[in-house]
């Protein structure tokens, strides 16, 4: 579908005005080096505007509005990420003032990697989330199978409960849980974090598994059984190719969500030994002068595996998260 000439010219005009405003504001009020970011954005917008005028009357399926949107999207998402990087790499004793890094020092990353406290915290997070995920997934698979394949009375209500516990403010339960853990004399142990972590992992796991299962071609399973497959053959030749990838991905996402929980970890952590990473980072913000740099560095390092995951399964992840609303 080719946009109309009129729509393209309007888009060009919009891009021009926006670029002009950005350029002026940048030149007048923004100090170097960020000035160049502003000017760069202005140049791109003006170039878009020019392109819009040039292509206005061509049959190319090119939408100038979309290009402007994508440019703004890039700025909106990337500038804060760059800022996070700048904060993380700020040399010791300096406070970064511009988005563009003015001096890059990897000390904070080095410090984060070699900090005993952060290592302990990461291990705590991974162990707790790992166990909670390992417990949640089989349960979630059974529940999702029931929801998708076994029609029964009351399943809407049951599913409503799952969604409710998924969206529930976990914070509201942090106090009672802490009290319970103290009463059971388990306060300050890693394992005491596991049952509360199920509060995060189990509803999310069920929710994602239901999404995965709904996209499974179940009629194929009937066909495989009709073909006379044994239980094992059905699992290997139907289950593995059709269900396993989605479930594996859901597992990883649940694990990541479990790792990233702050509230319960912070509420239940009595000492460095049992404090998960997010809570540790929060605590660190109150302690050190150069803390921002350390926190940002640790955050970026923590992000790395997730980005790796996104690189490996980009399509599946966007599908799973995007489609899960159905």
């Amino acid at each position: 579908m080719t946009p109309s000439v009129r729509s393209r010219l309007w888009a060009s005009g919009f891009a021009f005005v926006l670029g002009f405003a950005v350029a002026n504001y940048g030149i007048i009020r923004v100090p170097r080096p960020d000035l160049w970011i502003w000017v760069g954005l202005a140049v791109v917008l003006m170039a878009t505007s020019a392109a819009g005028v040039l292509f206005a009357d061509t049959p190319r399926p090119l939408s100038i509005w979309s290009i402007i949107g994508i440019e703004l999207f890039a700025v909106f998402t990337l500038v804060p990420l760059l800022w996070t990087f700048t904060v993380a790499t700020a040399p010791d004793g300096t406070t970064p003032r511009s988005v563009w890094p003015q001096g890059v020092s990897w000390d904070a990353f080095d410090g984060a990697l070699h900090s005993q406290i952060l290592q302990d915290a990461a291990v705590t997070s991974i162990v707790v989330a790992g166990i909670a995920t390992a417990v949640a997934m089989p349960l979630a698979i059974a529940a999702a199978y029931a929801f998708v394949r076994r029609p029964m009375r009351g399943r809407r209500v049951a599913y409503g409960l799952v969604v409710a516990s998924l969206l529930l403010p976990v914070l509201a339960l942090a106090g009672p849980i802490t009290d319970q853990v103290i009463a059971a004399d388990r306060f300050g142990t890693r394992m005491s974090l596991v049952p509360p972590a199920l509060l995060i992992t189990l509803p999310l796991a069920i929710w994602l598994c239901v999404t995965v299962f709904r996209d499974v071609p179940w009629s194929l399973r009937d066909a495989v059984r009709a073909d006379g497959a044994t239980w094992l053959q059905a699992f290997i030749r139907f289950g593995l190719p059709n269900i396993a990838p989605g479930v594996a991905l859901a597992t990883v996402l649940v694990f990541v969500a479990g790792c990233n929980d702050f509230v319960l970890g912070a509420a239940l952590s009595a000492n460095d030994e049992s404090r998960p990473l997010p809570a540790t980072l929060m605590l660190a913000t109150g302690q050190l002068e150069t803390s921002s740099s350390a926190v940002a560095a640790a955050g970026l390092l923590w992000l790395a595996p997730v980005v790796l995951l996104l690189l490996v399964f980009p399509r599946r992840i966007t599908q799973l998260l995007g489609r899960s609303y159905r």
């Binding site: 980072l281 640790a298 996104l310």
Partner: peptide, 23 residues
Amino acid sequence: TRIIVLIPFALLAVVSAVVWRDA
């Protein structure tokens, strides 16, 4: 783009809060 879209959400909320406060 698909990756970039999801990166902010994958960043720990604590970290995002810290850098935005500093900003």
